[in-house]
């Protein structure tokens, strides 16, 4: 495939930073709209954690790329086709059940990935992961608790959570997709192979969904194309339009 080593690391860092950027922005869309004040603040905290992680990943990505692009340049001045986040995180918030289910599915992947990255042979990557893993441990605990409470809650909450799971499950597979970039990065001990994280994810997901009385969909079909940038869903462009408009309309604006 001819990916140079810096290019592979750059792409891997974009995958990490774009996941947290896009999901962080999605969560921030709830700010002031969540169903309870306590949930509003909790989601905003999670969004801020993810934004903080984004800053680390994207500024390191810019450094590795070596073209003088800052974290802000990468976040605000790339268009859809240059984003490398998985399709799951760009899915719209829909209702609160969908938002929580999306968070739950991502958190448990994210936690496993960060634990692996904490032992990275690349010191700068390990450092970011070690800091992030504490935040994400809390995210994963919180989302699991809510999935259990709502799945095993009222008829309506159960139905909404099962709908959300059925809707979002086809976006799970992409998180564990493994290509030449992942293989190269894993061979150097920089990051775990995503595919290797799947068994632990499935076990954890199964246990929590059981407790939540939710049924894991059996269809293994997976939408793909986000982390390669090959084909994002139509939702990302709309999200970027609202996220990036200020830097696009007033380049270099600061306050």
């Amino acid at each position: 495939m001819g990916v140079g080593s810096d290019e592979a690391l750059f792409q891997s860092l974009l995958r990490l930073g774009d996941n947290t950027l896009v999901l962080g922005h999605r969560l921030s869309e709830w700010c002031g709209h969540a169903p309870a004040l306590e949930e509003d603040i909790a989601l905003a905290n999670t969004a801020l954690d993810l934004m903080g992680q984004t800053r680390h990943w994207l500024s390191l990505a810019g450094e590795i790329e070596g073209k003088g692009r800052s974290e802000d340049d990468l976040a605000m001045l790339r268009d859809v086709w240059d984003f490398r986040n998985v399709l799951l995180v760009e899915q719209p918030n829909r209702d609160y059940g969908h938002t929580l289910m999306r968070q739950f599915l991502f958190d448990h992947f994210h936690l496993l990935m960060l634990r692996g990255l904490s032992e990275s042979s690349e010191a700068r990557v390990a450092e970011i992961a070690i800091k992030s893993v504490k935040e994400v441990t809390y995210h994963a605990e919180r989302s699991a608790e809510l999935i259990i409470a709502l799945g095993d809650g009222t008829d309506e909450s159960h139905r909404r959570m099962q709908d959300a799971l059925d809707w979002l499950f086809p976006y799970v597979g992409e998180m564990f997709e493994t290509d030449a970039i992942d293989t190269e990065i894993a061979a150097k001990g920089i990051a775990p192979l995503p595919a290797d994280l799947r068994p632990a994810f499935d076990a954890q997901l199964g246990a929590i969904l059981d407790e939540a009385t939710l049924t894991m969909p059996s269809d293994a079909f997976a939408h793909k194309g986000g982390r390669t940038g090959f084909r994002h869903t139509e939702h990302l462009g709309h999200m970027l339009a609202s996220m990036q408009w200020l830097q696009r309309a007033y380049p270099g604006a600061q306050w």
Partner: peptide, 20 residues
């Protein structure tokens, strides 16, 4: 004070609301 469905969620909400 805050609203929460149970004690565990109340602890988490308190963490998010009051220990930022």
């Amino acid at each position: 004070s805050l609203h929460a469905p149970n004690a565990e969620m109340a602890i988490k909400a308190a963490r998010d609301v009051y220990t930022r």
